[in-house]
Write a protein that binds this DNA or RNA. Sequence first.
DNA 1: ACCTGAACACCGTTCAAGT
DNA 2: ACCTGAACACCGTTCAAGT
Lengths: 194, 194
Amino acid sequence: MAMRNSYTRRVPAPERTSLPAIVAAAGDLLESGGLAAVTMAAVAEKVGVRAPSLYKRVRNRDELLALVAEAAVADLRVRLAGADGAGDACARLDALARALREFARSRPASYGLVFAPDDIRLDRTQLEAAGAPLFEVVAELAGREHALEAARTVTAWATGFISMELNGAFRLGGEVDEAFAYGIRRLASAISQR
Amino acid sequence: MAMRNSYTRRVPAPERTSLPAIVAAAGDLLESGGLAAVTMAAVAEKVGVRAPSLYKRVRNRDELLALVAEAAVADLRVRLAGADGAGDACARLDALARALREFARSRPASYGLVFAPDDIRLDRTQLEAAGAPLFEVVAELAGREHALEAARTVTAWATGFISMELNGAFRLGGEVDEAFAYGIRRLASAISQR
DNA sequence: ACCTGAACACCGTTCAAGT
DNA sequence: ACCTGAACACCGTTCAAGT
């Protein structure tokens, strides 16, 4: 009895994985094999555990996918903050748009999870925080009164362009890079105050 | 023997459903319950048949979803063709953009299937055909040499705006209709020849 | 020639039992 | 306190057997 109690207290729970490891494993599976590859069993195996154990750290698969999306948003936030800085407003806008596109290319499936979620409910506030630098630059170009509409216009164009690119809508007629540059130039002048 | 042969020939196959009925049922389930609701069993029940029978008309679930997307594209094509017509190029562009948005609102899940497919491979040529009126109007505004880039810029903005709207990205700060109008006005002037 | 029940492998998820 | 095997309901898909 005393023996058993002491044993119970001394070996209560060897943690064999962690939430960050689980989210990272799910993200890797997502990028390498798409949403269908993000199986509770596959994630569990990647972190060296059995599927039922995942439910100690995560409510269900949907919540796990939401956490993957959140992690991607956090990454995007860092990238955008790092890309912002030098030059005039036009150059800054260009740099931010390119950083968004590079993020999408480096983690296309995660990008899709964030900007074209299927059922997953994700926290929009983090995404808005990530877009703050863009909002600021756009406000400079369009003026404070039109900052919101202008930012939405630019964001809509950028996310639409990138998801078209990821979906292979640009197969014919190459020069996607040029089309992106053309678009950003046009958008910048379109929202600029006369 | 003779009896059995004659019977076999006279009752060879009472068809209890059809491919169009199956695709329509799948589309209805998609709109009412999302992708997860499009189950082979649920589709089969809707058309009065058992799940295995569906495989007589459809290779698998992915192909069925692709057919749903194709049907949506065909609908979109009709809508865009009908919306095009009167007024100057600017007014026509406005009408086409609004028709796209109304399509998205009437069948949001199908819209997502077409413009933000998960794994489904869908025929891009039909989608390009549906977008022909838009391409034409844009060519008039931007000039033939810049028609392709301009059309891509407008399409990217429109699809990006609409998917943001469907995903609830515009919760705060109302007047989404105004933002759409603002965007289309800005885009039209942005791609117009000076 | 189409339809069906039965079967298979594979999901997500739960839970009692282990340590 | 976490981990596990066993179990459950539910998927997509196949196939031999019916008519």
